[in-house]
Amino acid sequence: MIGTWVAAFFTLAIFSFLYRDNPIYRLAEHIFIGISTGYYIAVQWHSVVKPNVVDKVLLGDYLPLIPGVLGLLLLLRLIPKYQWIARYPIAIYIGVGAALNMIQYTQGFLIAQIQGTMLSPTSINNLLIILGTLTSLTYFFFALEHKHLSKVSKIGIGFLMLSFGAAYGTTVMGRLSLLISRFDFLLFEWLGGMF
């Protein structure tokens, strides 16, 4: 019961921004940042640092000490004088991330998406997909001056506009769903709980 009231208060405090910026909104905003930052720190401790490093070391497996120490070196990024040390742990995950991206996006995205466009041109829809993909790609082709490709890329812009329009429609849909949920909470859980 108290929880619902607290949640309703903070919901209304955030909604108050719609009228204008005000002290209650500012207060709620800072409480939110404080609570969520504290939450993330505690969750990282319980989800990774404790089970994957501390507990293992206490059981006699000392290997996780290496990433543990590297992790602590990462925190040196916050001290300007020793910032450079943090480059080494960062280098590991930048390297891993870069290599993974290359493999993933070649195999899972590039090849599969190109294959998906190699359709037999026997239906209007297939032809439109082929035409739309090629002309839209032309719009992003910057190796050649666009005056040679202007007509083709204009068709591409048409497809892109249809896609952005569709994305706008689904964005409206998504944002409204979030609002519906908050109104649902205020109506049925908070006010509904009172009467």
Binding site: L100, F109, M173
Partner: peptide
């Protein structure tokens, strides 16, 4: 898509936000 399906072969579906 890029690891789970492409590398480990586990079929998948997605439930995504409207956006």
């Amino acid at each position: 898509i890029t690891i789970g399906l492409a590398q480990f072969g586990v079929p998948l579906a997605a439930g995504v936000t409207a956006v």
